[in-house]
Design a binder for these strands. Structure first.
Lengths: 235, 235
DNA sequence: ACCTGAACACCGTTCAAGT
DNA sequence: ACCTGAACACCGTTCAAGT
């Protein structure tokens, strides 16, 4: 922690040069994810990465061409954490439900990282695994061809948008709490309450909402709609 | 355009000091939105705001305490653009459908601004108008109390998450096109195609998907589910 | 809730030089 | 597809000074 001191001239080890290959994509990605978890979104800098890894800030450029590419690698890592351990169940509905909940929980556990990445196409290996797993379940539901890709988008759009937006809100809340604010929720106290009667009447109820319950309801709606339409098509 | 030149000593007007009150929250917000539209997300800086408004970069601090507060004002402006001209239709379903499409199109027209703001609670006047309008339609559908707020979230979550995520993807695409990249879409060419059979089989279909069509389908699913449940409750 | 200019601490990226 | 240190252009924010 208290390494860089210019006390110097003493016994070596002021900054023990890293030996070749001690930095890899994987260690950098892991450090980046940890920094995002601990310091939130503005915390991910080359300086902090260097400190965390005991390397010069610019050493990262040997492994990634830019900060954005590090974020894309973090994005793929997040997808990997979501599907690691996933096994298709016998029921395609259970499979998709499982994948949907995995995404929500991974994003909620890493809100800052999810916020910056959930809308990106990573083209990484884990994204391919996830897309393939979703398409596999949709094929088992009875969909093929263009229809299968349409249903893929209905499902993955809902999962990514909703889980990602939730993560973004959690990240904002954590940041504003760190700054001493608590005013992030939707309890409105308008200056002219008579202009917004429905908002004022609903004020107490806004506090009690569980967003994961709403997500579950939306996932069920999509799955049952998918089942209904698939049966219609088969008949 | 070519104002700041230190040719100086010539006829005055090198930088004609602004008269008091020529800067307002509204002009700053309008300039910020224009900059985001023209230069994308990293383009919104105090320097550019100053240039655009003919003012010193630091003059903004008289009107907003931070860059983030400018973004929140842009967020409320975006909501205002969405609902300006909105009139509740006789049918609550048509009302909600109208509000849903307005959000999508506003966000799609201002992708950079939407990307940074769609998940924020602005507490501004336009947000209040929008929340009130949604709750009003939901009450006409027959919902009250906690149930109404639950349905509010099902609807507004879908609208904001999906439209906002779409805007974020459009913004990424515009940025990568500006940098000469075209690889933003989901046509996958994996190194080991045999590992991802469904992905490879669906490659052509990924190109043809219209995301607004998918959004429309999801909005219809939520509205008809809302209608069904409301009738069950009334009986 | 005025506007400007200098100054500060920080940030991503480049590049010549060291192993 | 090695690691470091100096340098560059930029960025948000603060603050004393000008109207």
């Amino acid at each position: 922690m208290t390494t860089t001191r210019e006390s110097v001239t003493q016994a070596g080890a002021a900054s023990p040069r890293l030996h070749r290959g001690s930095l890899t994509k994987q260690t950098i990605v892991a450090a980046a994810l940890g920094i995002l978890d601990d310091h939130g979104n503005p915390g991910l800098t080359f300086a902090r990465l260097g400190k965390e890894l005991g390397a010069a800030p610019t050493a990262m450029y040997r492994h990634f061409p830019s900060r954005d590419e590090i974020l894309l690698a973090v994005a793929d890592e997040l997808i990997g954490m979501s599907i690691d351990g996933y096994e298709p169940s016998e029921s395609w509905m259970d499979s998709l439900r499982d994948l949907a909940y995995r995404a929500w929980h991974t994003f909620a556990a890493h809100p800052a990282a999810a916020t910056q990445t959930f809308f990106r196409v990573t083209r990484g290996p884990n994204e391919l695994r996830a897309v393939n797993a979703i398409l596999e379940a949709i094929h088992r539901a009875g969909w093929t061809g263009t229809e299968a890709v349409f249903q893929y988008h209905v499902f993955s759009n809902l999962v990514l948008s909703t889980s990602g937006t939730h993560a973004a809100r959690v990240a904002v809340r954590q940041e504003s709490e760190a700054n001493g604010n608590v005013e992030w929720n939707q309890e409105y106290y308008p200056a002219h309450p008579e202009d917004y009667p429905y908002v004022v009447a609903a004020r107490e109820d806004f506090r009690t909402i569980n967003l994961f319950e709403i997500y579950k309801g939306q996932v069920e709606a999509v799955l049952s709609q998918m089942a209904r339409k698939a049966q219609l098509q088969i008949q």
